[in-house]
Structure formats: structure tokens, C-alpha cells
């Protein structure tokens, strides 16, 4: 696994791409920034540009229409980068995976380094997984 965070133990900059989620995973990732989870206190932040990111999180099964946008965004993240797939859809485990439009998960489009299971994974689970990258 590429772990840029080993170099940057106190700072993890995350860029997120929704590749066809139901918005449940987005809602839980967004919750990391509320005062309850407050990921920033651990040095984790969500950044506006992939150019600023160490980690790319991806949710959804990677729809046919999002495939290229995801690849372009990933290519814009500087190396070394870590790709984290968030939620069961991103692992191809959703009822519509394999349909004419849905795609079948992040693997096969991008090699991912870590998967956070759940539908959706709780904000604590996401936070724990991201903090794990910093240890």
C-alpha cells in the first residue's frame, strides 16, 4: 500500500469523488467535518482540489458516466497517493452492480489501497480508517 501518510503523520488531506453513490456515504463523510467528529483536530481535512490531496476517497460503484471523471481526478492527485474506497457499492456489493450503467466497483477502474465496508460506514468507522493511515 502506498502510504504517504507515513511521511505526514499529522496531516492527511483528503479529496472525495462520488462515483455513483446513493449519497449515504457522502453524508457520512461530510459528517467528519461537523463538531461531533471534527476530523480536523486529527489533522485530517477535505480539500477542494485533487492537487492538494494525499488520499482519494471514492464512493459508489463507478458508473459508466463517472468512470473517466474518476480516472482524471485520480491522475491529478500527486504521487504517492492512497485510494480509499468507501462503502459497499464501491466494492461492487450493491444490487445494481453490473447493470448497463452502474459499473462494478472501484477495483478494475483504479487500484484501491483500502476499503471501508458498510452501507454506509459510520463516520466513526471512516475516521478510524483514515487515522489508521496516519499511524
Amino acid at each position: 500500500m502506498t502510504r504517504p501518510a507515513r511521511l505526514l503523520r499529522r496531516s492527511l488531506q483528503v479529496r472525495h469523488v462520488d462515483a455513483g453513490s446513493c449519497n449515504g456515504c457522502e453524508s457520512e463523510i461530510a459528517a467528519l467535518l461537523n463538531p461531533v467528529y471534527d476530523a480536523q483536530r486529527y489533522g485530517i481535512d477535505i480539500v477542494a482540489s485533487p492537487r492538494h490531496a494525499d488520499v482519494l476517497t471514492v464512493s459508489g460503484p463507478v458508473t459508466r458516466q463517472m468512470r473517466e471523471a474518476l480516472q482524471t481526478t485520480a491522475a491529478a492527485v500527486g504521487e504517492p497517493r492512497t485510494v480509499v474506497s468507501v462503502g459497499d457499492c464501491a466494492a461492487g456489493r450493491c444490487p445494481f452492480a453490473g447493470s448497463y450503467a452502474a459499473g462494478s466497483g472501484v477495483d478494475g477502474v483504479l487500484p484501491s489501497d483500502l476499503h471501508i465496508p458498510g452501507c454506509p460506514p459510520s463516520p466513526s468507522a471512516i475516521l478510524e480508517a483514515l487515522r489508521g493511515l496516519m499511524r
Binding site: G20, N23, S27, T63, M66, F96, A101, C119, P120
Partner: peptide, 28 residues
């Protein structure tokens, strides 16, 4: 951009099995 083909995915399913797909249309 997020079209997943949910409606076609439902075709052929027995109605009693449709819930897990339908509820994932949108979490909110």
C-alpha cells in the same frame, strides 16, 4: 452522472425482494 440503471435492475425481481434496491435509490 450517477445513473445506475436501478429501474432495469428491479425488473424480474419478485416484489418481496425489491426493498433493498429501492431503498438505495437515495439515502436521504
Amino acid at each position: 452522472w450517477k445513473h445506475r440503471g436501478i429501474e432495469k435492475t428491479l425488473e424480474g425481481l419478485h416484489w418481496s425482494d425489491a426493498g433493498t434496491t429501492v431503498e438505495r435509490t437515495c439515502a436521504c
